[in-house]
Design a protein around this nucleic acid. Structure first.
Ligand code: FES
Ligand code: FES
Lengths: 152, 152
DNA sequence: TTCCTTAAGGAGTTTTTTGTCCGAATTATA
DNA sequence: TATAATTCGGACAAAAAACTCCTTAAGGAA
C-alpha cells in the first residue's frame, strides 16, 4: 500500500542489525534467515545502504555488516529517501507531476494532511527506538516461520 | 507512494465521467485525451470497471461509457478495492502477512492510526463530490498539457 | 602460504505492471 | 443494406521490480 519490497527489506534489515551488539558484524545470511527474505536480493540492498553510508561492511571471516557509527538515530525517512528515491515526499496521490496548493488535484486538500502525517511519522521513527521495541519481544520483524505455527 | 498507476487512472477517469452529463456516453478516447493517459490501457481499466458494475458501456455510434445509475456516490474505497485488490486495507507497512494488534511489527502502533486515516478518507470521498470540485475549475484532473504552459 | 569465509559487483532471469495492437462484435445512421 | 464508429477480448511487447547466479576481491585463521 505504501512501500516497495526493497524499502521493507531495508528497514527490516536495519532494525535487525540495530538490535545486534554494535561492532560485531552481522552476516547477510543470518539477516536473510531471520527475516525470511531472499539472501541474494537482500545482499544488493545492504550493499546499497553501505554506499549511502548507513552501514559498514567487512569481508572475509568475521565479516558482515554493522550500523555505521552514529547511525543508530537514523530516521526511517532517511532510509526511504534512499530506497524510494528523493521524490518520496513530493508525490500527488493521483499521480500528477506537481503536488502543491496551487496545482491541486481534487484529492489534494484531503490528502495533504494525511501525507504530512506519514512524513512526520517517518521522520519520527529511528532505528534505535525500533530496535529497542523489537528487543522487548512484543513486536515482530518478520512473519512467524512455519516451525513456530501451531502444528496442523 | 500509495496507489498504482491503474488505480490513479481509474479514479481520474471515473471523476471525469462524473463531471459529464449523465446518460451521455463518454468516449474512451476523449477521456484518455483529457487525462493524457494511454488510451489502450485506459480502455482495459474501463472495461474492468464495467465488469464490476461501476460503469455501463455502449458500443457503436454514440457509444462510450457512463456511470451506472446510482454510482455517483461510489466512494474511492469501493474503487480501490477493485483496482488494488480486496486486501488493500489489510496490509502491514513492513510487509508482514498479518497486521493486527496481536501480531504487531515495530511500526504497527504508529502506522495504524495513519492507515485508518487513509481508509476513512477513501471511504469519505465520493465521485459526485470530487466531480463537483473539478467543475469549479479550482482543481486539476491531469497535468497541464504542454500547450497550456507558458510559451518558451 | 594456503584455505575458507565473506562481501562486491556484474550479468542475467523471472515476475509483475504497464502499455500496445489487432480482429471481431455491436450499433446508429445514411 | 452498407458504412463508420465504437467497445470487447485476446495476444503481444516493453518496462520496471524482484530475484538469482557466478566470478572476483579481500580478510582471518590454520
Ligand atoms: S496535487 Fe494531488 S495530492 Fe497534491
Ligand atoms: S503489523 Fe506492521 S503495520 Fe500492523
Amino acid at each position: 500500500m505504501v512501500l516497495s519490497r526493497t524499502s521493507q527489506y531495508a528497514i527490516q534489515a536495519l532494525i535487525y542489525i540495530a538490535t545486534q551488539p554494535p561492532g560485531e558484524p552481522v552476516l547477510n545470511r543470518d539477516i536473510a534467515d531471520r527475516l525470511n527474505v531472499p539472501a541474494a536480493y537482500l545482499a544488493k540492498i545492504l550493499q546499497s545502504l553501505c554506499k549511502h553510508g548507513l552501514l559498514d561492511s567487512f569481508r572475509g571471516r568475521l565479516g558482515g555488516f554493522c550500523l555505521r557509527e552514529g547511525m543508530q538515530r537514523t530516521s526511517l525517512m532517511q532510509v526511504l529517501l534512499l530506497t524510494e528515491g528523493p521524490d518520496f515526499t513530493k508525490s500527488c496521490i493521483l499521480g500528477l507531476k506537481e503536488c502543491t496548493d496551487e496545482t491541486a488535484c481534487p484529492m489534494h486538500f484531503k490528502w495533504k494532511p494525511v501525507k504530512n502525517k506519514i512524513i512526520a511519522m517517518m521522520n519520527d521513527m529511528h532505528l534505535e527506538d525500533l530496535a529497542k521495541a523489537v528487543q522487548t519481544g512484543k513486536y515482530r520483524l518478520a512473519d512467524l516461520p512455519a516451525a513456530a505455527l501451531p502444528a496442523a
